[in-house]
Nucleic acid binder design. Structure first.
Lengths: 205, 205
DNA sequence: TATGTGACGAATAACGTATTTGGTCACAAT
DNA sequence: ATTGTGACCAAATACGTTATTCGTCACATA
């Protein structure tokens, strides 16, 4: 609601450059250790042995660096989910894995890298582009599962595919979205399982 | 997660007392006007023409007064939902009304009494007893609807009633819980309708 | 006993200021 | 061109100090 902060990529200078990687490496460590807020751009500069001004040759803002780190995080989450889904059997099994892994992977991030998780929460609440992309990729994966289930007769076919995909995603949101998830922790894991059950019942042909 | 803050009633002195009512009246106005945080107990005291110390004869903390006001708010929400459900036809219709009214009534509170809504958000995030009671009453109402639907064959009967009730409530949480709802505003009203549709599909016999 | 209060301490918030931080730019060196 | 920086500014933040605020208690009055 705040602002239409689509927050575009915000990169700068050469896309492939060793210094860009050094910045990201330093940021990953500093952000994870001290948190996004407590890490200054000068800290990153000192870490890589260049001046602060030079960093702005590669990123047009501190937030842009945050987005790069956040992209790594949610990218990791997505990879875990995709892999778990890939190892599934039928569409029902895949859907269960989709929901379960999305939750467990995110919770794990919360407990192992709390500081990075905080960036994800901030990114989500501020509608960073990187989060929107994550949601779209997740919904894409979900849609694939739904298609498969519809084709082989596991799932009903009357409801428009888009609506099914969206409504499932909304229903699972308290267990996927970092902002919601940290407020759902005390319900885990039962609530997540039960909602997944509800979703599967709604998909019955 | 914070603390086991069941935050018991926290009343004091005589339950029925005109001064207690005066305090609540003053609090309702001040909280709605200036917000919970900006209203001091001395403000309330001045408003009713007694000393601050006297207020503590009736409430054991400022939060206790906040809970009283919050109880009024969520009580109003519940009444609206119950009334809307009562005007419904079959169980399917009642469920739709349940979900829709819970959302619209809460959103309306958000827009017409933002300051009071903030108290509800705070209460929910701090697990005030009054919110727990609200959730239980809402789930009770939901269970009644489910029972009716099961009895007359509208809804399936295989899934344990408790599980059905809980999972539906979780799925609707982004559109009912004040904390979640204010982050779901940009999805309304479509997402709410679509999730309700999903829920009804899951209930098909 | 029931009603009512001023004075008090510890915790918190408000406030103004000094410092830091995000970000830019002109300029130097290779 | 590309690589790299110190100096600089507005905005944000940290910090120390003052002022409020919550909540209690002993005490007064009817």
């Amino acid at each position: 609601m705040k602002n239409q902060n689509t927050s575009k990529a915000a990169k700068r200078g050469p896309a492939e450059h060793s210094v860009r990687d050094q910045i990201v490496d330093a940021a990953r460590e500093c952000f994870a250790h001290y948190g996004y807020g407590k890490t200054t751009v000068s800290d990153l500069a000192r870490e890589i042995g260049f001046s602060k001004a030079y960093i702005y040759r590669f990123f047009e803002s501190k937030q842009a660096i945050g987005e790069a780190i956040c992209a790594e995080c949610v990218g990791g989450l997505f990879d875990q989910v995709r892999e778990a889904v890939g190892e599934g059997g039928d569409a029902t099994d895949k859907l269960r894995r989709f929901a379960r892994t999305a939750t467990t992977a995110t919770v794990e991030l919360l407990f192992t890298d709390r500081k990075l998780y905080e960036i994800a929460v901030y990114a989500s609440s501020e509608n960073w582009e990187v989060v929107r992309a994550y949601i779209e990729r997740m919904q894409g994966l979900l849609e694939e599962i739904l298609k498969e289930g519809r084709e082989n007769g596991e799932f009903e076919r009357k409801t428009p595919l888009d609506e099914t995909r969206r409504s499932i995603f909304y229903a699972l949101k308290p267990f996927i979205d970092p902002v919601f998830l940290e407020r759902s922790l005390d319900l885990l894991p039962d609530a997540q399982t039960e909602v997944t059950g509800l979703v599967l019942r709604s998909l019955a042909p």
